[in-house]
Amino acid sequence: MWDDDGASRHLGIELVSVDHDGRLGRARTRMAVTETMVNGHRIMHGGYIFTFADSTFALVCNAGGELTVAAGCDIDFVRSAALGDVLLAEGVERTRYGRNGITDVTVTREGDGELIAHFRGRSRALKPRPSA
């Protein structure tokens, strides 16, 4: 999935680690804030922070190999990020119940560890399609 993710690649999101313990997934990613990501206030546009967290969420809930998509999500922006900042995202799958899951992703600034945003995603594993 990650190899075919052109959106994440275009933003320069780097995969640091991904893991699955047989039940729940985890992932870490990294991204630098570039000139094209800042808004008129000269801070990072919230949509890019959301996309960064969402890409990490996708890695987490697909870490077990089951085709899983977002069913919904929320994000809380805590602090702003600026041009030149490097952000880290850490995603942890909290639970799986049936085909559903809940994943938390924290976005922090590299260096000082300041919390930038907290994202909670709700996932849904898709049923395999029948073979043709």
Score class of each variant (00 low, 15 high):
3 D>W: 05
4 D>G: 08
7 A>H: 12
7 A>W: 12
9 R>G: 04
10 H>E: 09
11 L>D: 00
11 L>M: 09
12 G>T: 11
13 I>S: 01
15 L>Y: 03
15 L>P: 00
17 S>Y: 07
17 S>E: 15
17 S>N: 11
18 V>H: 01
19 D>R: 13
19 D>V: 09
20 H>E: 08
20 H>S: 09
21 D>C: 12
21 D>Y: 12
23 R>V: 13
25 G>V: 09
29 T>M: 06
30 R>Y: 06
30 R>E: 08
33 V>K: 00
33 V>I: 15
33 V>C: 03
37 M>R: 02
39 N>R: 11
40 G>I: 04
40 G>D: 06
42 R>A: 13
45 H>Q: 15
45 H>S: 10
46 G>F: 04
46 G>S: 09
47 G>F: 13
48 Y>R: 07
49 I>V: 15
50 F>N: 08
50 F>D: 06
50 F>W: 12
51 T>K: 11
52 F>L: 12
52 F>M: 05
53 A>E: 01
54 D>E: 14
56 T>C: 15
58 A>F: 04
58 A>I: 05
59 L>A: 05
59 L>F: 08
61 C>W: 05
64 G>M: 12
64 G>K: 10
64 G>P: 10
65 G>W: 11
67 L>Y: 14
67 L>D: 10
67 L>C: 07
69 V>N: 09
70 A>I: 07
70 A>N: 08
71 A>D: 02
71 A>N: 05
72 G>H: 08
73 C>A: 15
73 C>P: 03
74 D>R: 14
75 I>K: 02
78 V>H: 14
79 R>F: 02
80 S>N: 14
82 A>E: 13
83 L>S: 02
83 L>G: 02
84 G>D: 08
84 G>S: 09
85 D>M: 08
85 D>K: 06
86 V>N: 01
87 L>M: 09
87 L>H: 01
88 L>N: 04
88 L>V: 10
89 A>P: 00
89 A>F: 01
90 E>K: 07
92 V>I: 13
95 T>V: 13
96 R>I: 14
96 R>V: 15
98 G>V: 05
98 G>P: 03
100 N>Q: 11
100 N>Y: 08
100 N>V: 04
101 G>H: 01
101 G>Y: 01
102 I>V: 15
102 I>G: 03
106 T>G: 03
107 V>G: 00
107 V>H: 01
107 V>P: 00
108 T>E: 08
109 R>V: 03
109 R>G: 02
111 G>C: 09
112 D>W: 05
115 L>G: 07
115 L>N: 07
116 I>P: 00
117 A>V: 00
118 H>T: 14
118 H>E: 13
119 F>P: 00
119 F>K: 01
119 F>A: 04
120 R>Q: 13
121 G>Y: 07
122 R>E: 10
123 S>I: 03
125 A>K: 09
125 A>S: 14
127 K>H: 12
129 R>V: 13
130 P>E: 13
